[in-house]
Computed example of a mutant assay.
Amino acid sequence: MAVPFSPDRLVAILRAEGVRVVEVDSWRTHNRNHRGSFGPINGVMIHHTVSSGAESSVRLCYDGYDELPGPLCHGVIAKDGTVYLISAGRANHAGAGDGDVLGAVIDEQELPAPNDRSADGNVHFYGFECINLGNGHDPWPAEQLNAVELASAAICRAYGWSAASVIGHKEWTNQKVDPVGFSMTDMRARIDRRLGTKPEQPKPNPTPPPTPQYAPFPGVGWFKNNPRSPLITAMGRRLVAVGCSRYSQGPGPQWTESDRQSYAAWQRSLGYSGTDADGWPGPSSWAALKVPQV
């Protein structure tokens, strides 16, 4: 029986496989375990979000919505290949699906066509939501598909599974069409090839430089509470350094409208627009800013 990974173990296996990981808010305890069990684990399920924009997509999958509370997956895979972890427990991603499909996944056999909804996939699968509109026209960058391969292979390797344990949502239930835009058969072939080799390890360096220590993202709610903290000063200095200052004086430790306007300029410089560039920090733009620990 495959038990779920601890949060630390999940991060470790993903990073060992080469996945670029961002930990979002309280993801380690953010789950739906009060609604049912999580485990035994039998596979990995791949989805698309039907959304665009990293920050808004991560927030949607973290929070969910009225009809479907979050978390809506375990990780969100962005266009640039970053995997944003949003849960380590039960998540609302798979829903009801075909019990015969679950049996085939467990036995690592060819998948039957799904035709019933007799099994609860939220119990048995890790789920990754890939940011894509799902309209057949939104591209799948090589970095994103590589991250799907890496994340799936990491879990399969840790459990001793083959790529037959990785399925698309549309292979679980005939009520879904995702993922649209790439072949799950081709993706499983990629995963099996990767599982046949050891993950590439970084070459030893006798005098490696110290790893920069960056401040973790404190959550958008923290900023909206008008904090006073040395972290705000450190953030402001980074915004000045990257040419996004909108300060008439400072920056200082108190969050102000000048901080928000400066951060909005930073978001726009990354290519965000609309509500994704409203000046309230989000996890991906925060990671890109590289605010030092204070």
Score class of each variant (00 low, 15 high):
Gly53Ser: 11
Ser57Met: 02
Asn31Glu: 09
Arg117Ala: 10
Thr49Met: 00
Gly53Phe: 00
Glu110Asp: 15
Ala12Asn: 12
Val76Gln: 03
Pro69Met: 13
Asn31His: 15
Tyr65Pro: 00
His47Cys: 01
Arg20Pro: 05
Leu68Arg: 14
Val11Trp: 02
Val22Asp: 13
Ala16Cys: 08
Phe128Gly: 07
Glu108Tyr: 00
Val21Arg: 02
Gly39Gln: 00
Ala91Asn: 07
Val123Lys: 09
Thr82Val: 15
His74Ser: 05
Val76Asp: 05
Pro40Ile: 06
Ser51Cys: 04
Arg90Tyr: 12
Asp98Thr: 06
Val101Trp: 00
Val83Glu: 08
Trp27Lys: 03
Ala113Gln: 11
Glu55Ser: 14
Asn92His: 14
Gly89Leu: 04
Ser37Lys: 14
Asp80Tyr: 03
Val58Gly: 11
Ala16Lys: 14
Gly64Leu: 04
Arg59Met: 12
His30Lys: 08
Ile13Lys: 01
Pro40Gln: 06
Met45His: 03
Ser37Thr: 14
Pro69Gly: 10
Asp107Arg: 15
His74Asp: 05
Arg15Val: 12
Gly121Val: 06
Arg20Ala: 13
Gly81Ala: 11
His93Ser: 15
Ala113Cys: 04
His124Gln: 06
Leu85Lys: 06
Arg9Gly: 03
Gln109Arg: 15
Ala78Phe: 06
Asn31Lys: 09
Ile106Asn: 12
Ser52Thr: 15
Met45Pro: 03
Ala91Asp: 07
Val58Asp: 09
Leu72Cys: 12
Asp100Phe: 07
Gly89Ala: 07
Arg28Thr: 07
Pro114Ser: 09
Asn33Lys: 02
Ser57Arg: 00
Phe128Asn: 05
Val123Asn: 05
His74Asn: 11
Ala104Gly: 09
Ala54Asp: 13
Gly18Trp: 11
Gln109Trp: 02
Glu17Arg: 09
Ala12Leu: 11
His93Ala: 15
Cys61Ala: 14
Val19Gln: 01
Gly121Arg: 03
Ala119Lys: 14
Val105Lys: 10
Gly64Arg: 01
Gly127Thr: 01
Leu10Pro: 05
Tyr126Ile: 03
Val19His: 01
Asn33Tyr: 04
Glu55Gly: 12
Val11Lys: 07
Cys61Ile: 02
Ser56Leu: 06
Leu102Glu: 04
Asp98Asn: 07
Asp66Thr: 13
Ala88Leu: 04
Gly99Asp: 02
Ile41Thr: 11
Ser57Val: 04
Trp27Ser: 05
Val21Thr: 02
Val21Ala: 03
Val101Gln: 05
Asn122Tyr: 06
Phe125Cys: 09
Gly121Trp: 02
Val21Gly: 01
Ile46Pro: 03
Asp80Glu: 05
Met45Lys: 06
Thr29Phe: 13
Arg32His: 12
Leu60Phe: 09
Ala54Gln: 08
Ile13Leu: 08
Asp80Ala: 08
Asn31Asp: 15
Asp98Val: 05
Ala12Cys: 10
His93Cys: 15
Trp27Tyr: 11
Thr82Gln: 12
Leu60Glu: 14
Ile77Tyr: 07
Glu55Ile: 00
His30Cys: 03
Asn92Phe: 07
Asp25Arg: 14
Tyr84Asn: 10
